[in-house]
Design a protein around this nucleic acid. Structure first.
Lengths: 149, 149
DNA sequence: TTGCATCCGGTACTCAGGTACAGGCTTACC
DNA sequence: GGTAAGCCTGTACCTGAGTACCGGATGCAA
């Protein structure tokens, strides 16, 4: 009995054993009991906690945010209003949606550049017809459609 | 005459002066001429190059990729087939679209979690009804319907 | 010629999330 | 009790894109 060793926990959760120590330092995992010789002995729930961490990371939460979520999970009694998953998930959703919108603009620009036949960044920078936003553009050029070598 | 000093170029392009040296090390900017005392003297085009770099970065290209694009731009004569902007922009577009799709899955999951009223990660991990994918789930819970992935 | 802003090279640090290595101790099994 | 696998701490390294700091040299204008 007495608990799982770090290698066992790591294997069960599919993470590197070093990651356990790293998470402990970061405050995501509580310090476990030790054997007489100083080896960590984890309770079985630790595997679940690791899976929770990985799931939350996958949703876009940073480790600091995950730490706060786990923390909030522990003393739900003195419930702070903004610490819960619901509120944070809503905020994260807004972040993710903003990121998607940003990437969509980028994708549109790339599509436009491909369609316009741009094949040389530096040359494009001199031509006002190129859809790539060079912010403020250098002295104008003779633009048509192709890519004059 | 004789060229722009690093601070002038940096100010004109809106970047940190240190960034110029960094880009030089990374091979994005050619080594400029020097004054007798060893100070860099840039041609005016450098400002355009910096804007090109920033525009390409904005489109999702890494600095290594930007370096290759700039490189390809210089010897377009011995044209390597896959070095041009067009091909690379298409590849980058696919990357960006994949990332958008991934984020959309994440956004959907977050929306589902909010809708399901999840407010505690650890608790959710024990309940099969939570839409958050905990991969393989820990010992069961008191839940009604479930869709474990 | 003096004074100050700027620039030089080199090094080290930042953020995020880990991963790797070195040198020594513990545990488990036979 | 021997041996090998596993674990311990501490420290250094990785990617990516810069930024900061240091002591010293330069450039330019009055």
């Amino acid at each position: 009995m007495s608990g799982l060793r770090s290698g066992q926990v790591a294997a069960a959760a599919g993470v590197n054993p070093q990651t356990l120590r790293y998470y402990e330092r970061r405050g995501l995992l509580a310090e476990p009991d030790r054997s007489l010789g100083g080896h960590r002995l984890y309770p079985a729930e630790t595997v679940t906690v690791l899976r929770v961490i990985k799931a939350a990371q996958r949703l876009g939460f940073t480790l600091d945010e995950v730490a706060e979520l786990l923390d909030a999970s522990q003393h739900r009694h003195g419930r702070h209003p903004d610490a819960g998953l619901r509120v944070r998930a809503q905020a994260k959703l807004a972040e993710v949606e903003a990121k998607i919108a940003d990437l969509q603009v980028i994708a549109d620009t790339l599509r436009a550049a491909v369609k316009a036949g741009c094949d040389d960044l530096v040359e494009c920078a001199g031509q006002p017809c190129c859809p790539i936003p060079f912010a403020t553009i250098a002295p104008g050029g003779t633009c048509s459609s192709g890519s004059p070598a």
